[in-house]
Design a protein around this nucleic acid. Structure first.
Lengths: 205, 205
DNA sequence: GTGTGTGAAACTTTTCACAGCA
DNA sequence: TGCTGTGAAAAGTTTCACACAC
């Protein structure tokens, strides 16, 4: 047991998508320095170099990073996958119509709702399926990520159902803190929370 | 110059909305221990105590925290404010219809779009206003936070316009990294980014 | 010369552990 | 006795600064 930690720090993982987004604005077949990329991403150049060094040594000293190669390496780490959206209300429907997911390699493989008036209707050529089919559909289609876009009061139950169906990653838009077993990975997106944080700093100027 | 830092750490500010959300699930006129609140929030009890101690000493030794009092204190810190939504597409419209903002004390004081077909229409009894009126409306209504829900290619320009109009806090849903002067506070919500982070950890199990 | 890769230093955040108060 | 408030230790993160490769 000599050394056992080649793993990428959590904070670095959270910055990789930012670098990828910045690289999209740079022409292919070009080189970029850590200083330039840092300016685009709004971070320190040393941070860029350290972050990218976790992926391997892809830079060239005296030159910088090959934009295309770097983009491919980051995409390789972050990957892609099959997602299902649970809840076809305002937010769920907006997510179903959003095409940014597929640009990043994610496929929407299901859209579920418990409202009988919505089930069977189409949102942007994607049919709304009944909640009864949730478990079987997730398993059949090998869905890896569940997006919870239900109202607050249904979210916990949905989380338990998708977890029981074998999904281990959840993106939660419902304004509740989900209680899940430790092997389930939850990320939270809460709109009011973001406004509250901004508001905190407005008061302290 | 003896001591000059009573300020609340950034990470603590980001957790306060979580505690507030947890407290909403607890009956009023009750007491809660750091251990219970920590379990609900998914953090360590010592962290809860340290976070809350930055707000002052509101706990009672041997008993815990008064739920109502704690809720009021956190709300006092996080506050409320007037927000405008720029972009009335899928996402902007969903945000305009979302009632969670007002439950947390935020008022939507304007919804703007540059599509002449949308201007003048109503989304959930809120009228869509033309982009020409953006600056004057933000100033007149003393808007403090701008929510950018435009496509990627319009976002940077919108950020510059709202900044020029005096708004110093931006919640950005467009999938670009905004370039803004340092006194502007930007928070980013990017759906693909969240999926990519989840996907990274799926690959490493 | 130019800009990466990386140890070491500085700083931030989390967790421990226990004194102190109801 | 039970649980907070908080110094001090541990862990994690950022930044510096410079050797080294192109």
């Amino acid at each position: 047991l000599i050394d056992v930690k080649p793993s990428i720090p959590r904070v670095t993982v959270e910055r990789l998508p930012i670098y990828l987004q910045c690289l999209d604005e740079v022409p292919s077949a070009q080189w970029i320095s850590s200083e330039n990329l840092a300016a685009m991403a709004g971070v320190n150049p040393a941070q860029v170099r350290k972050d990218l060094s976790y992926l391997g040594s892809y830079g060239v000293r005296g030159v910088g990073y090959d934009v295309d190669h770097l983009r491919r390496q980051i995409e390789l780490q972050l990957g892609s996958g099959r997602v299902a959206i649970i809840g076809a209300g305002n937010l769920g429907a907006a997510l179903a119509k959003y095409h940014g997911f597929s640009e990043r390699g994610f496929t929407i493989s299901g859209l579920f709702d418990d409202d009988p008036d919505k089930v069977g209707t189409y949102i942007d050529d994607r049919i709304v399926e009944p909640m009864e089919r949730l478990e079987s559909a997730l398993a059949e289609r090998a869905v890896e990520i569940a997006i919870i876009a239900t109202p607050a009061d249904g979210a916990q139950e949905v989380a338990e159902r998708v977890a029981a169906a074998g999904v281990t990653s959840i993106l939660n838009f419902a304004p509740v803190i989900l209680q899940v077993p430790p092997h389930i990975d939850v990320r939270r997106v809460d709109l009011s929370t973001e406004l509250q944080i901004l508001s905190f700093y407005i008061k302290r100027r």
